[in-house]
Design a protein around this nucleic acid. Structure first.
Lengths: 131, 131
DNA sequence: AGCATAGATGACGTTTACGTAAATGGAACG
DNA sequence: CGTTCCATTTACGTAAACGTCATCTATGCT
């Protein structure tokens, strides 16, 4: 019978965000913590969503894009009626992410090549200095 | 003896950005087109950098971060004196990108799992409707 | 010479994603 | 009971990344 909910401060500590950020996300309907009187209590669902929100941000998605995609990850019974539409959106999102991975792979390869070039230059200069 | 430079409009068409964007990037010292009288002429170097800028944006980097990283990709002789510092920065950048790739892989895997769950639900409902 | 077209240069506006400050409300503690 | 500590609400502020005029200039037709 653990609480299973977290206060705003616990959330902030756990995810390294500010209270303002969490309230802002709630205002934008990305999160929907329950209330105990005045105070917000963040559920497991909120935590799962926040994790996805922060991940999405690191991938360069806007909050609005993220909002539209969040439902993909928690498709529950209430959503099953529109499931095929959601599924379609998910396919597009997946394609985007795989494209991004391909681009990221290329970027990594290019950077590595540049670094090898740089390493050669360093080696050349050291040899020169020693010669 | 091809021109090897592009006008602002050619750049805009090629990269799908607006003139404002290119001027903004110049003001932020991300690009440095040469001048023919008044007019800007974008060189091959500018095009290479713009490509990296847009890529960086898709990965969620800010323009300021991108500015600091751009030199990694065009390390020329003038930079060789500070090459080891640059090299160090490049290593960090590479580590970040590889971390991001790992996260992206996980995100893709999770989304795929969700989609399979969704597909099962659809199948179940179809069976139910037919039964 | 007249005019269209392209680009340049300010300057102000806008959106996103929060930061920050002020006023308020409970709960807890000595 | 006063104070301290959280948290809430409201509201204004801000940095980043451009958009959107308005105005000016240069260039090329005709």
């Amino acid at each position: 019978m653990t609480t299973d909910t977290m206060t705003i401060r616990e959330m902030c500590d756990a995810f390294e965000v500010t209270p303002r950020t969490l309230r802002f996300y709630e205002a934008k309907e990305l999160l929907s913590p329950i209330r105990e009187g005045q105070k917000r209590l963040f559920t497991k669902r909120d935590r799962a969503r926040l994790k996805l929100i922060l991940r999405g941000k690191r991938f360069g998605f806007s909050l609005e894009e993220i909002r539209q995609l969040l439902d993909l990850y928690h498709m529950d019974d209430t959503q099953v009626t529109q499931l095929s539409r959601t599924y379609d959106l998910a396919r597009k999102h997946l394609a985007e992410m795989e494209a991004q991975r391909a681009e990221l792979d290329q970027a990594i390869a290019e950077l590595k090549a540049q670094m090898e070039w740089g390493a050669e230059q360093i080696a050349r200069r050291q040899k020169q200095a020693a010669g």
